[in-house]
């Protein structure tokens, strides 16, 4: 294995630059290094002005999502040696406005995430000293979706979100489904008002890229199709029993 590899990094400051450019850096190629290590090496030794987000370095915080050789990846979990002999091209996540270099503006996702109400909604809260019991089967029903770390790789991969920014998007729907399927939750009907709109689940055309790129093996595409069936059943119920569904 050659002991160095070239990293091509997007450089862009919207306040000054007309369009993004690529800067190339040579970094050591070490077996245990991930793309994020290379970026940190560049920042520490080659160019301190390179701007990118990161925090935990262990695939938990969801901050370091970028596009590596065209594919949305968590850079802390993407090994440099897999791209040898290089070059490795690191770009910001697609479908988001760039703030600087590799940092994108995620506010659109945060607004959508809040809209889908990803928290437990109870009509009446139990007193604090009473517990909500849950069987292992009930936990299993939503556990997969609870692995989401809000890294937004699914938004970067989703061609529908790229074409129609109003689409609420994969993670917001998967997280809504995470709470819908939680036995302690009673908020499914509140979420349905948001999710069953045109820009909700019906925007999805089941391309499936969201599930492909998810680093935590959540299946947002599956969650959306599952929710389409739920919403359709509700629609049929409302049609058959117009009053009963109010």
């Amino acid at each position: 294995m050659a002991n160095r590899i070239t990293i091509e990094v997007t450089r862009y400051d919207p306040a000054q630059d007309e369009k993004p450019r690529f800067d190339s850096f040579e970094v050591p190629l070490r077996k245990e290094w991930v793309v994020l290590d290379a970026l940190n090496y560049i920042k520490d030794h080659l160019d301190g002005s390179l701007t990118f987000r990161w925090s935990c370095r262990m695939g938990v915080c969801g901050s370091c999502g970028m596009t590596v050789n065209g594919v949305p990846k968590l850079t802390c979990a993407t090994f440099l040696s897999d791209y040898a002999p290089g070059p490795v091209r690191v770009e910001p996540m697609k479908n988001f406005p760039v703030l600087k270099d590799l940092v994108v503006d995620t506010s659109d996702f945060l607004v959508k995430l809040e809209k889908s109400k990803p928290w437990i909604i109870r009509k009446v809260e139990k007193p604090l000293d009473e517990e909500y019991f849950q069987t292992p089967e009930q936990l299993e029903a939503y556990k997969q979706y609870s692995m989401c770390i809000n890294c937004m790789l699914c938004y970067a991969a989703c061609p529908v979100y790229g074409l129609d920014p109003l689409f609420i998007g994969p993670a917001a729907i998967a997280l809504a489904q995470r709470y819908n399927m939680d036995s302690r939750d009673e908020g499914a009907s509140e979420r349905m008002d948001i999710l069953s709109q045109h820009d909700g689940i019906w925007g999805c055309t089941f391309v499936g890229e969201c599930t492909q790129v998810c680093p935590k093996h959540v299946d947002p595409a599956g969650a959306i199709q599952q929710y389409k069936l739920t919403a359709t059943m509700e629609w049929v119920k409302a049609l058959v029993l117009p009053r009963g569904s109010e």
């Binding site: 008002d193 069953s196 709109q197 045109h198």
Partner: peptide, 16 residues
């Protein structure tokens, strides 16, 4: 329910 969509009907035909 606000902004009721006709998509469920079309999706039902699609999936059937």
């Amino acid at each position: 329910m606000s902004k009721r969509s006709n998509e469920p009907f079309l999706w039902l035909l699609f999936s059937a």
